[in-house]
């Protein structure tokens, strides 16, 4: 089955002020989601939740020499990349059916087909 990556974008402000209970509820939602992927006939290849962008360090190449190190994410956005799943699904419709179940708070998810090295 082809692989798709589900990128989760959320407003980080929601996390900064989250209580431990709220945090636990979100973690449980993700646990439930991973179970639902299998129920939907897909499977998880990989996944991770990311620490907030305040902890990010960016290395940016500017043509010549070694990359410049800066504090912060590569792109500053209100809704930041907060985590991802790599899943296997039959086709885009199947991947979107699964992605619809993915918890993303008040934000949303982006679904991208993953490059298949055997087809390169």
């Amino acid at each position: 089955m082809p692989q798709y990556t589900i990128l989760i974008y959320e407003d980080e402000a929601n996390w900064v002020n989250a209580t431990p209970e709220q945090f636990r509820a979100v973690m449980e939602a993700h646990d439930a989601f991973t179970a639902q992927i299998a129920e939907q006939g897909g499977s998880i290849v990989a996944g991770a939740g990311l620490q907030p962008t305040a902890t990010a360090t960016t290395l940016r190449t500017n043509g010549a020499g070694s990359p410049v190190v800066t504090d912060g994410p590569f792109v500053e956005t209100k809704e930041a990349l907060g985590g991802f799943y790599v899943i296997e699904a039959r086709d885009l419709d199947h991947a979107l059916t699964i992605a619809r179940l993915c918890p993303a708070g008040t934000g949303g998810v982006e679904v991208r087909p993953t490059i298949d090295p055997s087809q390169m």
């Binding site: 082809p2 798709y4 039959r90 086709d91 885009l92 419709d93 991947a95 087909p113």
Partner: peptide, 14 residues
Amino acid sequence: AAAGIPYRVPTGAD
């Protein structure tokens, strides 16, 4: 082709 949009008629709830 690249995103795998299926070549089919949607069914049921879709």
